[in-house]
């Protein structure tokens, strides 16, 4: 059974010049123990999706359609208070910059125990035991000593571990990790990715890993969803998407990533840039940059369709329910 189900989600920003549709008709689900990578360029809407799930959309942004179901419960339009309870009990959130998620004025131990105590009816000493257990779990050395340390006394990588411990306080069934490794050095990145993988595998947590870094996705995710200009253009098993991308955008994206030992003088690249929210073309948003563009692409948006690879779907006119007909 899937932990979270997103059906036809749309997010819009009303402005004086009309409504800007940031996300349109997005659907995916994440199973227990699975890591779904969500990739896209900045401005594609990948972070918005995460924020919508945890009910942290910045106004005037709003969910204008679709349904978010968490463990069978519709949480699309919960009140602020109810959403806070859901967030506390079911969803752990990890952001890019660990410093913004931690309060610099309190010790790490205090922040952990406070969070545990607000969501659970247990004694302080039990909560402290649990906090130290969590610090151990995320791989912080000498957790009893570090319990009384302030966030600034930790290094960047250790701080991100503390944020993960904080996200785990309530034994969440879903973790939303928004660029959790972007602010970290490459050597530390690998450590955090390994930790996230262990957590989802051992605890059966469903994880939504939002990032722009295909390397991180390749390493951590089980499945990957590619978002372009507010729409899901491809979704599938991580190996098939990376090794045999189906949507022309995903192909272009994969080709443009430099690889060690590739020895190309020029990198293959996609010309142009992703359109702004207020400047999307008719039809498929990728059509002005697409090398395989056909007349229909300029008029109508293709739905997600099955491709010749089982379980891999792409929103492109070159596929017609399992067959490629170009």
């Amino acid at each position: 059974m899937s932990v979270v189900d997103i059906e036809n989600l749309s997010i819009e920003f009303p402005t004086r010049r009309g409504i800007l549709k940031a996300i349109e008709g997005l659907s995916f689900s994440i199973e227990a123990g699975e890591i779904l990578g969500v990739v896209g360029e900045s401005g594609a809407g990948k972070s918005l999706t995460g924020n919508a799930i945890v009910g942290l959309l910045e106004p005037p942004g709003r969910v204008s359609g679709g349904k978010i179901t968490l463990k069978g419960r519709d949480i699309t339009h919960l009140s602020e208070n109810e959403m806070r309870r859901v967030r506390g009990a079911e969803i752990g959130v990890i952001f890019q910059d660990p410093l913004t998620s931690l309060n610099p004025l309190y010790t790490v131990g205090k922040q952990l125990t406070q969070t545990i105590l607000t969501h659970r009816n247990i004694s302080y000493s039990k909560a402290k035991d649990r906090a130290i257990e969590l610090l151990t779990e995320v791989g912080i050395p000498a957790p009893e000593l570090r319990f009384d340390a302030f966030p600034h006394e930790f290094s960047g990588g250790m701080r991100q571990r503390v944020v993960i411990a904080l996200a785990l306080c309530c034994d969440p069934s879903l973790i939303i990790a928004d660029e959790p490794t972007t602010a970290l050095d490459v050597s530390v990145q690998a450590q955090i990715i390994a930790l996230l993988k262990d957590l989802s595998r051992d605890k059966g947590v469903a994880t939504m890993l939002v990032t722009h870094d295909m390397g991180v996705i390749a390493e951590a995710a089980d499945r990957v969803a590619v978002i372009y200009s507010g729409r899901l253009v491809e979704i599938g098993d991580v190996r098939s998407v990376i090794d045999a991308p189906k949507h022309p955008y995903t192909r272009g994206l994969m080709d443009s990533i430099p690889q060690i030992g590739q020895n190309l003088k020029y990198l293959p690249n996609i010309e142009g840039a992703m359109p702004r929210l207020d400047g999307r073309p008719d039809g498929c948003a990728f059509n002005p940059r697409c090398k395989m563009v056909k007349p229909v692409c300029r008029e109508e948006i293709a739905a997600l369709r099955a491709t010749e690879n089982a379980g891999q779907m792409a929103a492109c006119w070159i596929y017609d329910g399992g067959h490629k007909y170009v």
Partner: peptide, 13 residues
């Protein structure tokens, strides 16, 4: 530590 896109081998942290 370089993430390997194609091979899928686990990198050593």
């Amino acid at each position: 530590t370089i993430p390997d896109l194609k091979g899928g081998t686990e990198r050593k942290p």
